[in-house]
Design a binder for these strands. Sequence first.
DNA 1: CGTGCCGTTGATGCCTATCAAGGACCGTGG
DNA 2: CCACGGTCCTTGATAGGCATCAACGGCACG
Lengths: 240, 240
Amino acid sequence: MTKRPMLPEDHPCQTCHVSAEALCCALDADTLSDFRNQGGNVCIAAGEPLFHQGDPADCVFSLTSGVIKLNSILPDGRRQVIAFLFPGDFVGLEAGERRNFSAEAVSEVRLCRFLKGRFEGFVSRYPALADARYRKAAGELALAHQKIVMLGRMTAAERLASFLADVHRRIGRKESNGVKLIPLPMSRGDIADYLGLTKETVSREFTRLRASRVIRPRSLALVEILDPQRMQELAYGIAA
Amino acid sequence: MTKRPMLPEDHPCQTCHVSAEALCCALDADTLSDFRNQGGNVCIAAGEPLFHQGDPADCVFSLTSGVIKLNSILPDGRRQVIAFLFPGDFVGLEAGERRNFSAEAVSEVRLCRFLKGRFEGFVSRYPALADARYRKAAGELALAHQKIVMLGRMTAAERLASFLADVHRRIGRKESNGVKLIPLPMSRGDIADYLGLTKETVSREFTRLRASRVIRPRSLALVEILDPQRMQELAYGIAA
DNA sequence: CGTGCCGTTGATGCCTATCAAGGACCGTGG
DNA sequence: CCACGGTCCTTGATAGGCATCAACGGCACG
């Protein structure tokens, strides 16, 4: 993170690690300070909901740490995870009066919260913020299009490979020896609901990727990529 | 359409039937006239491409009549129709340097074309236009989320019902006696690629909807809804 | 050391894809 | 006017991939 010298040393944004990608980076220091005073910090434990389908959408959030999943649930209980959100992502781009999906913390999560009305005021006063918001939405739209292709036309193996490649791109780490690691804070069931599969199928595909030496699980929540090229081929270079 | 008295009688926007939903409606008459001079009209015959995957994205379009499909094609030839676009929809919200998908006319199509650079200039000069663009993108994002649920968790029958309900909402007509009609300018193969199915499955599901008296096809391209309630139930009220 | 949750593995079945053939529609040309 | 070929749609037979049902195993927790 780049320091922002105009801010007081104890300003919460001083310790934020996502200013590079977050919406806030569209604002200069003075404005940012003003902006931050509009909302507050939120911290949510793993498994706890942020909001539910149908709730009034009266605030928006910027995710600073942790992972969130967005769920859509059909009347008969079938569940689809629409997206996993990572630090730097924004919650509330959809602009409806009510939430079309629920949001739940996958791991412990920190967010900056802004009241929607005040946020809108900022957007109209600062064109750079409006532009950043549009570009976030456009980026989300492109991701959604890729996910549509994945769900419509890919096999189970390809879906899992796309997912792993995508998570690696977003929150992957490299060890000092160059080994690529993928943290997987979400459960197998969550992954299944994200990929349009069942947890059993996801489990089987994990086993097959391990058997074919493409990945090596260090634990349930941490996977090492042994063969990045094969992984990219399976995913057709598309990060789901 | 509402007349725009400030425009010259022969101005092309005077005969545009989509000003209510189109992006242009964010502009007043003076600005609109200026705006329209930036681009030009385009007319494309059914089946002809507007652009291809990978092309430089140097212009954006507002669709005024006809239907367009957006295709994404995997290296091995599998095809997914990402969206059908109807009059009032906008092409080029994605904001990338290159096209992530191809666009092809399903029926004869008319569009207003704008050079991207000049369009961006207008967006930065007219906040109302920027806002309208954001709301279009947010709306597309919400639609994409619904489509993700459909592709991830719905059966073939539910997918087709969702599709028919959606097309009806967008371009459906009512006869004087109240009968609801759905025009289907796209082929069965296009519908299949949109729903993540094969044309054979789509055909079979059409037959089953007909057999159970939910719809009555007048021709391949025009379907009458006999039982709107049953249709909505099958689609879970979700327009795909 | 149980208990419970989550993940894995196995057996079976169903939904949709695939392969194949026939039918409807349309434009062209005899 | 009808024969003809082509394209798209429909219908049938079969196969395959993933879901479902069921049992087992690992790990954390009290």
